[in-house]
Simulated assay, not measured.
Amino acid sequence: MRYSVVVHKDRESDYGVTVPDLPGCFSAGETLDEALHEVVEAIECHLEGLLLDSEPIPTPRPIEHHQNNPDYAGGVWAFITIDLAKLSGRTHRINVTLPERILTLMDRYAVEHGETRSGLIAEAALEYIASHQHPGAVRGDATT
């Protein structure tokens, strides 16, 4: 999943990073690179907590949705890609049959967006489920 983040820097402070789609998720760093690196861990920990608590995982919204919020005024926007396949520790190997053309498109998209095939499938499944349930959230307590 790609989450938009906003970075703020005051004269006498470190860089602060907020994740608008994940209330309460934020990070900081002495440099911009460090701040953006640290927010990846903050997002992963936040999502892990949601999954462990069987809470909904918010679907990322476009930056335009957040830009008029005065809390983010003057900030610099960036995107952070999170591989959902790496979350929650336990994974299960499955066998899926797909047409070669779709697999090629998936792999190309995953590479271009810094994702893995498994992460892309997990993200697509969560977004599909979210769009067919209630808007804005996906439950983390799916069973097989």
Rank of each mutant, 00 (worst) to 15 (best):
S131F: 07
H113F: 00
A130Q: 09
E55A: 14
G89H: 05
V96A: 13
F26G: 01
M106I: 14
T104P: 00
L105P: 00
H66Y: 15
S54Y: 12
A110Q: 11
E30R: 14
G75P: 11
T81Q: 15
E127W: 02
N95T: 14
W77R: 06
A35N: 10
R139G: 14
G74A: 04
S131W: 08
L36I: 00
I63G: 01
Q133Y: 11
T59E: 06
A73L: 08
K86P: 02
M106G: 04
E112Y: 09
L32Q: 09
I94G: 01
S118G: 13
T31A: 01
L47D: 05
L120T: 05
E123P: 00
S88G: 01
F79E: 15
L36Y: 03
N95M: 05
V40P: 07
G24E: 09
S118P: 05
L105S: 13
H113G: 00
I129F: 14
L120C: 04
V96M: 08
D21E: 04
I43T: 06
A28P: 13
E64F: 02
F26I: 02
V39P: 01
V40K: 15
F79P: 01
E48C: 08
F79K: 13
V40Q: 15
L22Q: 04
L98K: 00
R117I: 05
E41T: 06
I129M: 15
V111A: 11
G49P: 11
D53H: 15
L87R: 07
D83E: 06
A122W: 04
P58M: 09
P135W: 05
A78M: 01
I94T: 10
V39Y: 05
G24C: 06
I80C: 11
Y128R: 13
D21C: 02
P23T: 10
L126T: 09
G89V: 03
P62D: 15
H66G: 00
A125D: 02
H132I: 00
L87K: 08
H66T: 06
P135M: 01
E44L: 03
T116I: 12
G74I: 09
H37A: 07
A28E: 15
T59P: 11
P70M: 02
I80M: 03
I57W: 06
I57F: 10
L126E: 07
S27Q: 05
V39D: 01
A124H: 03
E34G: 07
T31Q: 10
T81P: 04
L103M: 10
Y109Q: 10
V111S: 11
R90K: 14
L36P: 00
E127K: 12
A78H: 14
E112F: 07
I63K: 14
G74P: 04
Y72K: 06
G114Y: 05
K86T: 15
Y109D: 02
H132G: 01
A35T: 03
H37Q: 03
A85W: 07
W77N: 03
G24F: 04
W77V: 00
A110E: 07
P99D: 15
A42P: 00
I80F: 11
L120H: 05
T81A: 15
L52W: 14
Y72Q: 01
I129E: 14
E48R: 07
R61Q: 15
